[in-house]
Every structure is written in C-alpha cells, then in structure tokens.
Design a protein around this nucleic acid. Structure first.
Ligand SMILES: [Mn+2]
Ligand SMILES: [Mn+2]
Ligand SMILES: [Zn+2]
Ligand SMILES: [Zn+2]
Lengths: 158, 158
DNA sequence: ATATAAATGGAAATGGTTATCATTACTATT
DNA sequence: AATAGTAATGATAACCATTTCCATTTATAT
C-alpha cells in the first residue's frame, strides 16, 4: 500500500491516548502532527487535505473519527465560528496548556486568538463557576468565551 | 388563501424592523409571537411547526429567512448548543433587555439560562473588551459565554 | 388604484457530517 | 511465527439542517 506512515518515536500525547483505550496509528499520528503545526484554526477538510497529501492512505472519514476522539479525550477543542464548518485546535502542545479565547470578525470571519486577559478572566470564571455550580447543582468542566465584532480591516473599509 | 393572518396592532418590535427597511408581514409577526411566548430555546423547525399549525401559509423557508433578518437586526440571538441545529432566542422582550448566559449539559444537552452573575461578569467583560479593542484594534459588538458540564441529573446517574 | 420592489413557498440543491460494511491492521496469546 | 479477537480504516451512500431557485403573491408608497 502506498503512503504507509512509518511509526516514529512515542509522542507526548500517546500516553493520554492509550490511557483512554485507543490505539496509536499512523493516521492519528499524522492528524495530530498537522494540528500541532497549524497556525490557524483548521476544518476537518483542511486537515484531511494536508494529511492526505503526505499519506494518501488516510481518508476524510478517519479524520472526522479521530477528531471526535481527540475532542472527547480533551486533546482538541472544537469550535463553531459561524461559517458552517467546525474548526479544530489543539488544547495544548508539548510545552503544556495553551488556553486562550477568541475574537471573531462578523464581516470577514477572521479569528484572533488572545490570552492577554486570561488571568483576570480566570479569576472571575472561577468565582462564577463556583456560584453556578452551587446554585444549579451543575458540575462545570469547561467554558467558551468569544467576542464578536469588526476586525481592524473591516472596521475601516465600512 | 387559508390561514391568512389578520394584522394586529403595531407591536413593540415593528419600529426597529421597519427602521432597517424591512416590511412587516403576517408570517414575521407570527414568528416573533412564537419566539416571545417560548419558554425554551427553539430551533427553526420548532418555530416552523408552531407557526405553521396556526398559519399553514407560512413555510419553513420563510422562517429561516426571517430568523436571519432578526439576528442581523439584533432582535434575536442565534446559538449553537452542539446538537447540530441552531437555536434561537429573543434578545429582549417588551420590557426590554434580558441578557443572560448558558450552562450546557454535555450529556443530555439540557440548557440552563442564568443571569445571576451577569453583574460581575459584565464588569469584567467591559474591562476586557476595552483592553482587547485597543490591543487588537477590534471593534467589539457582542460576546458569547457558555459553561459546559454535567447537569444535576446526569451527574448523579453516572 | 397602480406601480414597484420585497417577500413568499415549494421543490430542488447544497454541503458538512455520519452511518454502513467489507477489509485491514494492531495486539496479545499460543 | 501463526492465530484469534478486536479496533481501525476507507469508500460509498445516507443524512439532514440550511440555502438556492424561481414563479407568484404581497406590502407599501404614490
Ligand atoms: Mn484559537
Ligand atoms: Mn437562553
Ligand atoms: Zn474582518
Ligand atoms: Zn444533563
């Protein structure tokens, strides 16, 4: 079979993946590889195209299936930026957590990562989560914060 | 034609609607009516079924089209709670603003509205928005905050 | 009442995501 | 190294919420 991927050294995420009972495969390696090299928020098809160009043996279905697992395991975040397709992003890299939030331009759909104000936000989030947990008996495990508006370019040429 | 909707008195939202150059029609009246009476977060089809049962002359396409306008005008919020269909909610009612955020159960998809902690959140949001606006030259017009986790029932029977 | 542009509904198309299923690749055990 | 059992895979078809099309109707200003 063409496009077989030789297995490399154990990667940082193999532990968590195996720990959840999943097998490490060439396709999955390639998908995470693409995600960790990505500089923007990729759709399933984006990932498929990149992976497929190097390993034609990996199909779109596998990309979707793998992403679902990665999201469930917590290695990947799945976002809806409003353009009709889901976007995926590694929740951490080799160095560790890299939590951030997003600014989304409603005009051109550009997405800006920011983590500048996370500190203060985290503080309030913590407080809010505590209050909500108690009041609604709700076990909070995560949050989503996005700001919408107009990016520099779109605000100018309006 | 059966199911014609007699136009009632001018409604509170007609002003904003007309102001944006849109026409007031029976279908649009009915759609807002359903939204304002709704106690939960309705999908386009939910709305269609309710409207259609009273005014069979209103089609699903019109529901989608009207919702899009309402969202653009700012009278309705469109949410993605992760179950594959968009959910809609009036951004305000006759009394005025009714801004709140959501708790979403990842197991059963139940959605809880909360506005208890909005005050404090608003304060921080304001601060954050100011900072972000300046740093990224981004004109912020809105935000989305959602907490994910397990609702009382789902947390117990796990 | 008339004119004009906007709104409408039904049917068909779209397109991202899932389900199916026969085949293949891991992994542990002999 | 061969075997068995199970998980993973890819190609294709199905799914289904949302859009597009287009001929017809309607709202609104004159
Ligand atoms: Mn990001
Ligand atoms: Mn709500
Ligand atoms: Zn923009
Ligand atoms: Zn639940």
């Amino acid at each position: 079979m063409p496009g077989r991927l030789g297995r490399g050294r154990p990667f940082w995420w193999h532990g968590k993946f195996k720990g959840c009972g999943y097998k490490i495969t060439a396709g999955r390696d390639a998908i995470i590889e693409v995600l960790s090299k990505a500089d923007k928020h990729l759709s399933a098809e984006d990932i498929y195209l990149k992976v497929h160009s190097v390993y034609p043996g990996v199909g779109l279905t596998t990309v979707y299936r793998t992403l679902e697992i990665l999201v469930n395991v917590g290695l990947v975040y799945k976002f809806d930026f409003g353009d009709g397709r889901a976007r995926y992003e590694l929740s951490q890299d080799e160095e560790g957590e890299d939590h951030h939030h997003h600014l989304i331009c409603k005009k051109c759909n550009r997405v800006i990562d920011y983590s500048d104000f996370i500190e203060e936000e985290a503080e309030l989030l913590n407080k809010t989560e505590k209050g909500l947990s108690k009041k609604y008996n709700f076990e909070i495990t995560g949050h989503l914060i996005q700001f919408y508006g107009l990016c520099e370019k779109c605000a100018n040429r309006k």
